[in-house]
């Protein structure tokens, strides 16, 4: 793939850095053309490949480990009561 077809080029013609490309891929913000380019790029850029693996693992672990807090049992009921009181007043 040639330099000219780099789909990560910014409006001012500047190339995006590895980190900027990686972030778009990681966050699902890259378009299909950019994804394809990045796959090709990773084959020849070891730091990108390794960072991608680490970043994906962290993203996954954050989702698994930091979303488990139980909502207090009475929260929804209390909210509904407050709304009822508001309507009644």
């Amino acid at each position: 793939m040639s330099q000219q077809s780099n789909p990560f080029l910014q409006p001012d013609g500047k190339k995006s850095s590895c980190m900027q490309m990686l972030q778009l891929i990681l966050d699902g913000e890259a378009n299909p053309e950019q994804k394809e380019y990045f796959k090709y790029h990773m084959d020849k850029c070891m730091p990108c490949f390794k960072t991608y693996e680490v970043d994906m693992t962290i993203k996954e672990m954050l989702r698994i480990k930091c979303r488990g807090d139980e909502v207090p049992n009475d929260l929804v009921e209390q909210l509904k009561d407050q709304i009822k009181q508001k309507i009644a007043s």
């Binding site: 850095s17 590895c18 980190m19 900027q20 730091p47 390794k50 960072t51 680490v54 693992t57």
Partner: peptide, 11 residues
Amino acid sequence: VDRQITPDLRV
């Protein structure tokens, strides 16, 4: 931005 590409961290 790419210089310190990532801290010393492994999967």
